[in-house]
Design a protein around this nucleic acid. Structure first.
Lengths: 385, 385
DNA sequence: CTCTCTGACTTCGATTTCGAAGGAAGTTGG
DNA sequence: CCAACTTCCTTCGAAATCGAAGTCAGAGAG
């Protein structure tokens, strides 16, 4: 696990927030600083109201450590994970742990300004309802179902977000909330959340999000790989198939056109089985409806074939299958089988394939972690008073 | 461009060696250290014999800088790029610039010990012949046409290196040469060399090596991505094709079985055209032999199709086409066309596709750079006297 | 040629960080 | 209960680093 993106006091805050360190001694070991320097800085962090001392810890054969934790006044992050017709809102502490959760119905197609205004207002209300109005908000995180340019914080050519193209989401959100803002693709957030929560010691992880669409986030060397904003796209790879289906992107036989939740639903509807959401597909599979199982198996084979090439190329330590469709067991099983059958032994030798452990709030978690990673600035400022 | 993998004096040596800094002032700007600290450390580096002052530089409107360069006594690296029947040997300075080059006929299939012994001895002889016997050797780099486990420096399940499986190449080489050793896959070395020499400011770069086989090296966030040693493999991806060809790996229709130089040669031989090496194929194409051109075009289309998925997924800033086959112009043109046609606009928007600029010694260059990156230890030691 | 401006170093006191030593507060084993 | 460790944390002088001011050496303008 890579730590210390930068150093300075923020590194100490990160270590405590993520639970890696609970005492001055652990901070010294993990940060590489001298014990005396750690003591000094911790003193300052306590004075600034970011850390608090929380009684004595468990002895490891000597004097008991004086346990450190984040002070309540250290602050919170406001986080929203937007879907097409729905947003998941959360107030999380600096560690990313949700303190309050709620759901908000909101149609993303009404455009960015009303959507983002409603989301930020909803977040503030949520914080107030849980008695957190007096706690400083250190940042806002927004997950979106489309590509985000990391340089500008703008959405770029999203396929299912009419009116959002080139809208400066980060700027607008930061302005409206009055805090720093983080804007990121939802699959990327999920990848970060899954990685930090479940596989913190692995350096290279791929997370695929199977829902209505097909998304993918990539952790390289412990950090999110963004590329120019398009990284992780696997949905428009051309697949080998008998029937030809045209994709919304204009090319024939994209993976998404054959194997996404939306494609599966369309295919089942054509067979006279009424479904709308991925969750309903999962239910059908669980109920043993043969057409559903067969469709899901077929999708798994297609997805597995595509992943084969990517696993050989990227050689990850783990491949995590998440998203609402991932609860359909035959799907994961088929993907797993395709990869083990067709990939190089060298690439699968140390590869773990697992379904999501962090669950549906993985994205929330990931946003918290990314916001913490970018917290160097305000931490430094808070200390200088 | 990412610098300062670590800090300390090694960072300054790197900046001077790579030509990024030529004066104390530039070192201060690029390293982030205070000017006074830089002056102090430079003093020590000069005393230790690593740096030398080389007259006055060009004024930028004020006092002229006192130009810094690597001292001759700073040392050299010995580097070898091994192919199946041939090794390219070089003595390079710390900047990676070749001071002496030679070719050595050696059959890799006689096994690791005799091969590596001959290579290291050849390197020492080469240094001696060029009057470099008195200059300290700071490291040995070896490029191999097979997967290398970065953790152990062992070759792992190579397909064309009988007798090398699990052999501790790094350990043996370091022992025989009496210096630190670096062992790396040849395509990876080529990727590093190409990146540092031609595209130092781009963070994410893919380099494919088209020769008898098909290799690929990946630079992520300015650093070589190794994965567990298999990263960058693109040769065993299944392709869509009419005829079925079985690959040596046991699966049908791998890219390598259809589009590698060896596959092209076999196909041309079957048509009654005698060729052996990739260079001869390039000659045929240049001469306008229609069967050769057609075969190369077909290979380009297949390779392009595979790269399409990887470019969408990885979203690199540049894709570099290298290796001896890359001189066949229709090949690169076809690959380029396939990618621009089929990739997401978002992924190709900022993508540069180019043929190799560093040429056939890119691997040598890359080895030099990687050895320099790992030079922190001996630099620190040299300073402490 | 002189005067001013700019950039390249140096000098030197202030600050930060280190690390060895020591005190505090436990555990373990007789 | 006591002596011998261990671990946690602080103290304090030494060392490294910084940064503001000063010096040096050129360019460019008048």
């Amino acid at each position: 696990m890579r730590n210390s993106r930068d150093d300075g006091p923020a590194a100490l805050v990160r270590l405590v927030a993520t639970g890696q360190a609970e005492s001055r001694a652990e901070l010294a070991r993990l940060s590489g600083l001298a014990a005396s320097s750690v003591s000094l800085r911790v003193e300052q962090l306590i004075e600034a109201g970011l850390f608090a001392e929380g009684g004595a810890g468990v002895s490891r054969g000597g004097r008991r450590p004086r346990r450190l934790r984040l002070a309540r006044a250290a602050g919170v992050f406001l986080v929203a994970d937007l879907g097409a017709r729905h947003a998941r809102l959360a107030v999380v502490d600096l560690a990313g742990t949700p303190l309050a959760l709620s759901d908000l119905a909101c149609d993303i197609s009404v455009g960015p300004e009303p959507t983002l205004t409603a989301v930020v207002d909803g977040l503030r209300r949520l914080a107030g309802e849980h008695g957190l109005a007096d706690v400083p908000v250190r940042g806002v995180g927004v997950g979106l179902p489309g590509p985000v340019d990391p340089a500008t914080g703008q959405v770029v050519s999203p396929s299912r977000m009419p009116g959002w193209n080139d809208f400066p989401v980060r700027e607008f959100t930061a302005g409206h909330a009055g805090t720093p803002a983080l804007v990121e693709n939802d699959a990327n957030l999920m990848a970060v959340g899954e990685h930090r929560a479940s596989w913190p010691d692995l350096d290279n992880v791929m997370v695929i999000k199977l829902g209505s669409g097909i998304g993918c986030g990539v952790i390289v060397d412990g950090r999110l790989h963004r590329g120019r904003g398009a990284a992780g796209d696997i949905s428009h790879v051309r697949i080998r198939s008998e029937a030809t289906v045209d994709c919304s992107c204009g090319h024939p036989d994209c993976l998404e056109a054959h194997a996404s939740g939306a494609a599966l639903a369309a295919s089942l509807n054509a067979q006279g089985i009424a479904v709308e959401t991925p969750a309903q597909i999962v239910d059908l599979v669980t109920d043993g409806v043969p057409q559903a199982t067969s469709a899901v198996r077929n999708a798994g084979r297609l997805i597995g074939d595509v992943l084969t090439a990517l696993v050989n190329f990227f050689n990850p330590d783990a491949l995590v299958i998440g998203g609402s469709l991932s609860n359909a067991e035959p799907l994961a099983a088929t993907i797993r089988g395709a990869i083990y059958e067709r990939c190089l032994p060298l690439a699968t030798r140390n590869l773990r394939i697992a379904t999501s452990r962090a669950g549906r709030d993985a994205s929330i978690l990931g946003a918290g972690h990314l916001l913490l990673d970018e917290s160097g600035e305000w931490i430094d400022q808070t200390l200088q008073r």
